[in-house]
Simulated assay, not measured.
Amino acid sequence: MHTGILTDLDFEADGRSATFLSIPYSIDRSPYFQVKIPVFRFRNGAGPRLLLMAGNHGDEYEGVFALGHILRALETNLIRGAVTILPMSNIHAVMGARRRSPLDNGNLNRAFPGDPAGTPTERLAHYLEHALFPQHDVVFDIHSGGTSMEHLTTALIERQPTPEMMDKARDLLEHLGQDYAFIAENGYDSPTSMGAAARAGAIGISGEFGGGATVTPVTMENTKRAIDNLLVRLGITQAPLISESKAPVSTTILALQSHDQAIYATRRGWFEPVVTLGQTVAAGDVAGYYHDLERLECQADALMFRRGGIVISRRLHADCQAGDCLIQAAAEIES
Rank of each mutant, 00 (worst) to 15 (best):
L124C: 06
G4H: 04
S243P: 00
T3M: 10
K168V: 06
L9F: 11
G212F: 10
F209K: 05
L78M: 12
D179G: 13
L156T: 09
P87W: 07
G211Y: 08
L86F: 07
E75T: 14
F182Q: 09
I37C: 03
P113K: 09
N107P: 10
N44P: 09
C298N: 12
M220L: 15
V286I: 14
P87I: 09
V215Q: 10
P134E: 09
V281I: 13
L50R: 02
H151C: 15
R233Y: 03
L52V: 08
W270L: 10
S313R: 10
G58N: 12
Y61W: 15
T237Y: 01
I227P: 05
M1I: 13
T276L: 13
R199A: 13
R43V: 00
V311Q: 03
G63D: 08
H130F: 15
D10R: 08
A196D: 01
S243T: 05
P116F: 12
P120I: 08
A184Y: 01
E129A: 11
I183P: 01
V281Q: 04
A73E: 14
A184R: 07
C298K: 13
A239R: 15
I253A: 00
T223F: 06
K168T: 04
D292M: 02
P48H: 06
G145Q: 09
H143T: 08
A282T: 13
D319S: 14
L277W: 02
Q279Y: 05
Y61V: 10
E60N: 12
A111S: 15
E60A: 10
K36L: 12
H57R: 08
R267W: 00
R268Q: 14
T280W: 03
V274A: 03
R225T: 15
S245T: 09
V138N: 05
R80A: 04
Y127F: 15
G106R: 04
F65H: 15
C320T: 14
A198Y: 03
L71K: 14
A322N: 04
V274G: 02
A196I: 06
R80G: 02
G45Q: 09
A200P: 01
H92P: 05
Q160V: 05
T119F: 11
F65A: 07
Y289G: 04
L241P: 00
E244C: 03
G4I: 08
G235Y: 00
R41K: 15
A155S: 12
H69G: 01
M165Y: 02
I312W: 01
L132Y: 06
R170P: 00
L50E: 11
S250M: 09
R159T: 13
L21I: 12
Q261G: 02
P113G: 14
G96L: 04
E244L: 10
L296D: 07
L293R: 11
A247W: 00
A82N: 03
G284S: 00
T219R: 09
R314Q: 13
T276I: 07
F209Q: 06
A318Q: 11
P102T: 14
V286S: 03
A181K: 01
